[in-house]
């Protein structure tokens, strides 16, 4: 296990920190059983470790401010920025502005690229369609980032009230919604919530697998949308497939490889 040989008190520390081989561990335990003072020290150190976790572990489970997550475009932007000033709010508003600007710029460019390739080089002004699509993946990603790390309140309505959830969100979005079943891919419904969007009410359904990997399906009304094929977008480690079908735009968002996410998107699409 560890080539280092511990001696004396170091041996006791190494015992507490799991740095010993099984044989060494046995030896220490025998020693402790006949040396109450050392046993007390060891117990006290172990309690310190537990105390530290109780005091500070919650911080790792907290939702980190999204501005801390550097997407690819932001990353290149940061390198050229000046050393960080000490005021939190200033750093973050600057970064938030950079993220916003770059994602809009980035996806605009990306959509533009797709538009041109789809139209075999015939140049047309994309018009409202591009503007509309730009506004659609970002809220889906943001809602995903905000709610999936939640341990206690990931959704407004839990899966045990699935029928109510479907009815409620159908009413609010004014479209009959079915909640896709992803059990065959190992994902079960956690629940869902109502969200605000620039196009009125939007909905988010959340699923998770046994590894507690979560995916969200975001739906919002899209006026005048046509049915489209899946489109793909990624930002940081988050990937999304989105498409239009009838009055709604859909985005399936998750942290998994593109292949897996695409299979889930197929599964969702088949059930709509």
């Amino acid at each position: 296990m560890n080539k280092h040989k511990f001696e004396g008190a170091d041996l006791l520390h190494a015992y507490v920190d799991g740095e010993l081989t099984a044989a060494e561990r046995n030896r220490v335990e025998q020693w402790l059983s006949t040396h109450p003072e050392d046993a007390e020290r060891v117990a006290s150190w172990q309690k310190q470790t537990r105390g530290l976790r109780v005091l500070f572990d919650h911080k790792a489970e907290e939702i980190a401010p999204p501005q801390l997550f550097p997407g690819e475009p932001l990353a290149t932007n940061i390198t050229s920025s000046s050393p960080a000033p000490r005021k939190t709010s200033r750093v973050w508003s600057r970064l938030a502005a950079a993220v916003l600007w770059l994602t809009i710029g980035g996806s605009g460019g990306w959509f533009g690229h797709e538009y041109i390739s789809n139209n075999s080089g015939i140049f047309q002004v994309p018009g409202f369609q591009t503007a509309r699509t730009v506004n659609f993946t970002q809220p889906a990603l943001e809602a995903h980032w905000v709610y999936t790390p939640e341990a206690r309140h990931p959704v407004e309505v839990l899966a045990n009230e699935e029928a109510h959830l479907a009815k409620w969100l159908s009413n609010r979005l004014e479209v009959p919604l079915t909640i896709p079943d992803l059990a065959s891919a190992g994902f079960s419904l956690v629940g869902g919530r109502l969200l605000p969007s620039t196009n009125g009410p939007a909905a988010q359904f959340m699923y998770q697998n046994t590894d507690e990997n979560r995916v969200t399906l975001y739906l919002s009304r899209q006026s005048g949308s046509k049915e489209t094929a899946f489109r793909y977008h990624e930002e940081g480690t988050t990937r999304a497939f989105y498409w239009y079908d009838g009055p709604l735009g859909y985005a399936l968002v998750g942290e998994m490889n593109r292949q897996e996410l695409s299979q889930l998107a197929d599964l969702v699409y088949q059930q709509l």
Binding site: K59, A60, A64, P65, G71, A75, T88, V91, G236, T237
Partner: peptide
């Protein structure tokens, strides 16, 4: 690189917070 960096953020925040015990200083 970015993937690993992003993954490290929650525990870096925990470590930073435990060092300074002030949320905004820690996030700085």
């Amino acid at each position: 690189f970015l993937e690993q960096l992003t993954k490290a953020i929650p525990t870096l925040r925990r470590y930073a917070y435990a060092l300074v015990r002030d949320s905004s200083l820690a996030d700085d």
